[in-house]
């Protein structure tokens, strides 16, 4: 469950990064459709946070430690929403670039989460 969600989040985060990166390249700010995309990715990250906490409460133990796992879960849930607010305040191509950067950060966090949980076990 964790593994599937992590892969799904990593892929959608990269898609979001490419989409917003394209908008930045074309000198466009983020539009309503981009925010819907961000909402989808943010929702997935929140689902992952909840599933992760439920799994921990159920007695599962991440390979590389509880504190690190929870920190990464919270970080990945916050990354896209924070960037979304920043792109609301920055109505230029740089707002799009900011979201693209945050989405790449999220993808990296997912790779690390995958390792921290213990590879394919989840």
């Amino acid at each position: 469950m964790i593994a599937a969600l992590t892969v799904a989040l990593g892929v959608t985060a990269l898609l979001l990064a490419a989409w917003c990166g394209w908008a930045a390249y074309r000198d466009q700010p983020t539009k309503d459709w981009h925010f819907i995309g961000m909402a989808v990715v943010a929702l997935l990250a929140i689902v992952q946070l909840v599933v992760g906490i439920v799994r921990l409460a159920g007695g599962d133990d991440p390979d590389q430690g509880l504190a690190i796992f929870v920190a990464y879960l919270i970080g990945s849930a916050l990354a896209v929403p924070i960037a979304a607010f920043m792109s609301l305040a920055e109505r230029t191509r740089w707002g799009s670039a900011t979201v693209a950067a945050a989405a790449v950060v999220l993808a990296v966090l997912e790779v690390r989460l995958y390792d921290i949980w213990g590879g394919v076990g989840g």
Partner: peptide, 10 residues
């Protein structure tokens, strides 16, 4: 602001 926003995020 502008490109600085990206730097703030990073």
């Amino acid at each position: 602001q502008g490109p600085g926003r990206l730097l703030v995020l990073l």
